[in-house]
């Protein structure tokens, strides 16, 4: 059985990754799971300088999921390269670094610094975080802005780039096409859906930022639909995510057209989810006599 998947010429031992922002740089979860068993660790977003993030409360529970507005708190690329990359290099897993910024120059600065680090296999460009006011999502909600940032990043990137798309758009296919035409090597989707929760007893927003990004099993059908639509719009590979809790969920995304999948919010609920999904995909392949994972990608019929 071959669980390998190839994205932009890079071979991943299996299609299971971590969704950015839910797994830090792997350090915290390395106490629970063997990172060597993952296809890749996708890090929390890193900017050119440290970002303090949003005020608290930053997280709230909603039916079957959660809202977050962390606001991309991160230590900046320099600390990240001195501390987080060496940590991840100890493991036999691919490293994908999620890059965030407020301006094109911010993104380019991070991308250039990471270009000197061959241990980083790919860069995931975060143009879809709904929780920061400048940059980020401003680049991800209009096709021309997405095209612009993709081209600029691509010019400076040494590693292949994944554009992480926002679901908070009218036509995901159009956004996928714009990123592909601008040179993206792969796409990842979906980021969180913008949501809101109000505490009726205190008459206050549950999250200090008022809005937050919704994630968790409740959003999975939306994510599967969007992955399917994006996969039909472009030729480049897609990393699918949104509410994956089990191997069955992951296989849905793969059948919809994803070449790989990421586990996000469910890491918080069950820290062993990633490895359980790896094992479950293998069991599914055995059950249905699937020789290679590639045979499942986009294999939904009808």
């Amino acid at each position: 059985m071959n669980t390998q998947t190839i994205i932009a010429g890079i071979t991943f031992k299996n299609p299971v990754m971590t969704a950015s922002g839910t797994f830090g740089s792997g350090m915290e979860y390395s106490e629970f799971v063997d990172l060597n068993q993952l296809g890749a660790v996708v890090t929390k977003g890193v900017a050119n300088v440290p970002w303090p993030g949003n005020p608290t409360p930053r997280v709230a529970e909603v039916y079957g999921g959660m809202l977050n507005a962390i606001g991309l708190q991160n230590p900046g690329i320099d600390v990240f390269m001195e501390r987080d990359i060496p940590f991840l290099k100890q493991y036999n897993t691919k490293i994908i670094v999620n890059v965030c910024g407020k301006t094109v120059e911010d993104y380019v600065e991070v991308v250039e610094k990471l270009g000197d680090e061959p241990a980083v296999s790919m860069l995931e460009i975060n143009v879809s975080c709904p929780n920061v006011k400048e940059g980020a999502i401003a680049f991800g909600q209009k096709a021309d802005a997405l095209s612009h940032i993709t081209k600029e990043v691509k010019k400076h990137a040494k590693q292949p780039i994944i554009m992480k798309l926002s679901p908070n758009v009218t036509d995901i296919g159009e956004m996928a096409k714009a990123a592909e035409a601008a040179g993206a090597d792969a796409l990842s989707l979906i980021n969180t859906l913008t949501g809101m929760k109000i505490d009726i007893h205190r008459r206050k927003f549950a999250i200090a930022n008022k809005t937050g990004g919704m994630s968790g099993p409740a959003i999975k059908p939306i994510a599967v639909r969007m992955v399917y639509q994006a996969a039909h719009a472009v030729q480049i590979p897609i990393i699918g995510m949104g509410g994956i809790a089990t191997a069955e969920d992951a296989i849905e995304f793969i059948l919809a057209g994803a070449s790989a999948v990421s586990v996000g919010a469910m890491n918080f609920v069950n820290p062993y989810t990633t490895v359980e999904v790896v094992k479950g995909i293998e069991a599914y392949m055995e059950q249905y006599h699937v020789e290679k994972l590639a045979d499942l990608i986009g294999a939904v019929e009808g």
């Binding site: 830090g24 915290e28 929390k44 820290p271």
Partner: peptide, 13 residues
């Protein structure tokens, strides 16, 4: 309010 409880999500600062 916490989500991960282990220092990964940066929710409870």
């Amino acid at each position: 309010h916490m989500a991960c409880g282990v220092g990964a999500c940066l929710g409870c600062v």
